Simulated assay, not measured.
Amino acid sequence: MNAFARELLRWYDHHGRKELPWQHPRSAYRVWLSEIMLQQTQVVTVLDYFQRFVERLPTLRDLADADEDTVLALWSGLGYYRRARFLHHAARLCVERHGGDLPRDLDALMALPGIGRSTAGAILAQAHGLRFPILDGNVKRVLTRYHGIEGFPGESAIEKRLWRHADEHTPDERTADYTQAIMDLGATVCVRSKPACLLCPHAATCVAHRDGLTTVLPTVKPGKKIPTRAVAMLLMRDGRGRVLLEKRGTQGVWSGLWSLPEAVDADAAPAVATTFARVHTAEPLPAFTHVFSHYRLDVSPLLFDHAAPLAAVADRADRRWCDREDIASLGLPAPVRTLLDHLPEIAP
């Protein structure tokens, strides 16, 4: 075991996180679920989602048997919904090809949708104690600073270099603890801004700390301006308090989720609304902006209260009038769910 791993494990024994819900019990399914949820999402956010998910779907076979709406409803609010679809698809493939379990082979794991090299390594290391390195965002930051590596970590050459370092530091013993330890160090000490270098077990040997480079490493991705688009969301609510929802298609953002009908702007909204119901004048609700990875969406919600559903527009698989109980069981984008949760009481 090299000095890097030895010092890190000594730190972990005193300061590491050992009571995370996916550690007790630490099964391959629970590790896998946590790794997917933790992509682009902090631990503090994931905790409640993880608990709710495993209470409803405690095993891989339960996940495979669930319908997509159930999975997306449990995921609703975590964002990046493609992760949930990949998770669901991978579970069904495990039932078909691997006897209902995640395989214990790196290549077989990476052949499943949504599982890359780092996630596969984390599953094998944490669930089975096998020696496989990981390289998630936290680990990249730790290794970039420790070795003083300049250049955007997402570039192929830089990433290959980081994988070499990740492999050379991963010990043969206590691999599960080491894997958790290096993620913990990046999440709690070697953070993006204002890292707590005085608390780091590697402060004496870290190049970035020695050379005053912690504010510039890792090198940020070359930026580009994010475009903005606008949309009007139509909240058509009938006299029974039901809201019209539509299931989005398989392409674009929020694909496969239930959302509100849309119009290009407030002026066009009444014409769209009248294709579904007889409506009165709309009440504008507070506008908001939702930021995706590749653009900003400016949303202007409009409430059409006491809408009268047209008889010719019947419920169908991808469109229906939903009460609160229906809405709770569907996968909705987080901003849409928040909007519905905060609707004013229906006017007399």
Rank of each mutant, 00 (worst) to 15 (best):
L8A: 05
L9T: 06
R10K: 12
R10I: 03
G16S: 03
G16M: 04
K18M: 11
R26I: 10
S27T: 14
A28G: 13
Y29I: 10
L33I: 00
E35W: 04
I36G: 08
Y49T: 05
Y49F: 14
E55L: 02
D62A: 14
A66K: 01
A66R: 02
E68H: 00
V71K: 06
W75T: 03
Y81P: 08
A84I: 04
R85D: 11
L87W: 01
H89F: 09
A91T: 00
H98E: 10
H98A: 09
G99Q: 02
D101E: 15
D105P: 00
D105C: 05
D105Y: 02
L106H: 09
D107K: 12
L112H: 05
I115T: 10
S118L: 06
A120V: 09
G121C: 02
I123G: 04
Q126F: 07
Q126I: 13
A127Y: 00
H128P: 13
F132W: 13
L135D: 07
L135S: 04
G137M: 02
N138Q: 04
N138D: 03
L143E: 01
L143C: 06
Y146V: 13
I158L: 07
R164T: 05
H165T: 08
D167A: 14
P171C: 12
Y178G: 11
T179E: 00
Q180I: 01
M183A: 03
G186N: 00
T188M: 10
P195T: 04
A196C: 06
T205V: 08
H209D: 14
R210A: 15
P227H: 00
R229E: 04
L234E: 12
L235N: 03
M236P: 03
D238R: 00
G241A: 03
V243C: 14
L245P: 07
G249F: 10
G249I: 01
Q251P: 03
W254N: 14
W258S: 11
S259W: 07
L260P: 12
L260I: 06
D265F: 11
P270E: 04
R278Q: 15
V279K: 05
E283M: 15
F288R: 08
H290L: 13
V291C: 10
F304H: 07
H306A: 13
A307Y: 08
A308K: 11
A312W: 02
D318K: 01
R320E: 08
E325M: 09
E325K: 05
E325S: 12
I327H: 10
I327K: 12
G331D: 02
P333G: 13
V336H: 13
R337F: 10
L340Q: 06
H342T: 14
H342E: 12
E345Q: 11
I346K: 14
